[in-house]
Simulated scan of single mutants.
Amino acid sequence: MAARVTHSQPTGFGPRDILVAAMMNILWGLNIVAVKLAVEATGPFTAAMLRQAIVFIVCASALRIVPGKMRELIGLGFLSGGVFYVFVNWSLAVSDNVSALAIAGQLSVPFSLILAVIFLGERIHIVRIGGIALSFLGVVLLVFDPSAGSEVTGIALTAAGSFIWALASLIQRRMAGVPVLTIYAWMGLIGTIVLLPLTIWQEGDVLKALPTLPLRDFGWIAFSAIGSTICGHGAMSWLLQRHPITSVVPLMLASPVISVIAASLFFATPLTPIMIAGGSIALVGVAIVTIRTARAKEHQG
């Protein structure tokens, strides 16, 4: 998630904009592979805690008290920096078919819209309702796939993580004007504080063995922290400063496709016809919700 920013007048996408958008999608798309490898190398909670610690270290210079926004920053750090990663990394620890989790992870978009309707009074019409229905239908289809049906626990944990992300997105809407690096500094700090006791409790032996962990395994965690979290979301913020939200948001839809394909190729898990159908249906639903919501926000602005 990135802070809401005010974009300048549209200037058209030049080569540099296209390159930044491609980098953003590649970083986000490959992140699920990096997180899975980090979880296997350390443990779900250790990997999450180290990721947030790295985010904090990189962004620490931007940490500052933001008058009138501290309650939101603390809440965002607790949910998006801590609890969210508990569910996501746990789901990866108990699952083999990572592609199925990449599809289920798209539920954060319809969840976010549903919560906005309930708590913020946002009004939606039949098109976005249909998009929500398609998103859930695509994920439900995974249960009927022999290669993904055994991952019900992982899919459920991913769905729970997506719901936490959606809750955090309600708070994110109140962060207008707060620098992105300041947001991530607080998320990294609070996320580390939230995850450290859980890590000590569940994976204390892993923490003691960290000095012997190969640099390659630290690299997967650093990729998630710096590549996906800081650079990926920083790229999106940079694009939103230069172009209308309706032009930028559709570009994000490439990342789940990259995630599904990359996970299938890297971990040699099959992409069956049912998975492809479910993923396609879910992606269409997410695209409808994402693009229509972006247009609604632009008209309001």
Rank of each mutant, 00 (worst) to 15 (best):
M1G: 14
H7A: 15
G14V: 11
A22H: 10
N31P: 07
N31V: 09
A38R: 11
E40R: 14
T42H: 03
T46H: 02
T46S: 12
A47V: 12
M49S: 13
R51C: 03
I54G: 02
V55R: 02
S61M: 12
E72P: 02
G77P: 07
L79P: 09
V94N: 11
I103D: 02
Q106I: 12
P110V: 10
S112H: 10
G121Y: 00
R123L: 06
H125P: 00
I129K: 07
D145C: 02
S147V: 15
A148E: 04
G149H: 03
E151T: 11
V152N: 09
T158H: 08
A159V: 15
G161M: 01
L167M: 13
L167G: 04
I171V: 13
Q172N: 15
P179E: 06
I183W: 00
G191K: 10
I193Y: 06
L195V: 04
I200G: 04
I200T: 08
W201L: 11
G204C: 04
D205H: 13
L207I: 14
L207N: 08
L210M: 03
L213N: 02
F218T: 04
S224A: 13
G227E: 03
I230Q: 03
G232L: 09
G234R: 05
Q241M: 15
V249L: 11
P250K: 03
A254D: 07
V257A: 12
V257C: 06
I261A: 14
A268V: 15
M275H: 11
A277F: 12
G278F: 07
G279K: 04
V284K: 01
R295F: 14
H299N: 14
G301M: 13
